[in-house]
Amino acid sequence: MKGVRALALVAVLLSWAVVTYGNARLEVVNPVLLPTPTDVAKVFADSVRDGTLVRHILTSLVRVAEGFGIAAVLAVGLGLLAAMCGPLRLMLEPVIEFVRPIPPLAFLPMFLVWFGLGEASKVAFIAYTTFFPMFVGIAASVLRVDVMLLRAAASLGAQRVDLIRRVVLPAAFPGIIVALRVGFGLALFVIVGAEFMGADAGLGHLIMEGRTFFNPAQIVMGALVLGLLGSLVNALLVAAERRALRWRTAQSA
């Protein structure tokens, strides 16, 4: 299985190389429009050398971390509250069902109007975008907690606070982790859009700069870096999830 996956990746890279190097030789279209792996590697090496790439990556990651962090804290807190308080849930449900189908990017200009071109607008936008799916996922996983677990704990003497801390949170934990992972993925997704509009740094800005200065190799490089960053973060989160959820996969000895 591992072999097949690696092979598929190699095939994609190989096709890219064949098409772009072929085009560079035959000049079917202007070679600048189809950057070769060499072009991209060169842009990459240059931006690593002068330190701009690291600066762009860090800028984006800090925005993602802040926006996602705020949204995660709110989503866990409100998700717990909504799941355990029926009337609140009834009130929130229609609001969320109304807001959720609106593509988050539709509100991006609003955030720029409210928070200006600085960091605040990006952080707030990411928090706004990631909050709803995380909130819905977390509330759902808290609602799914087996009432029998609560009964078992109560008959062992658990009071309300114990029930939340020692039963609801650990029982909902797998669902909460998945919701956070989805939220983080989404944050990496929308930061690019936010940085397209009025940012002076960040990977989205780097890509937009590639367009402004007609440097397609830089666009491809930015996209590849984002892809790598996304898979890296995802792999880290999956590993953390596995570790935290050993009890689900423990094998009979």
């Binding site: 677990l149 008959s155 039963v167 689900r248």
Partner: peptide, 12 residues
């Protein structure tokens, strides 16, 4: 103390 038919242990 209560013992349930379906055990209801805390799986974590």
């Amino acid at each position: 103390g209560v013992v349930f038919q379906e055990y209801v242990l805390f799986p974590w």
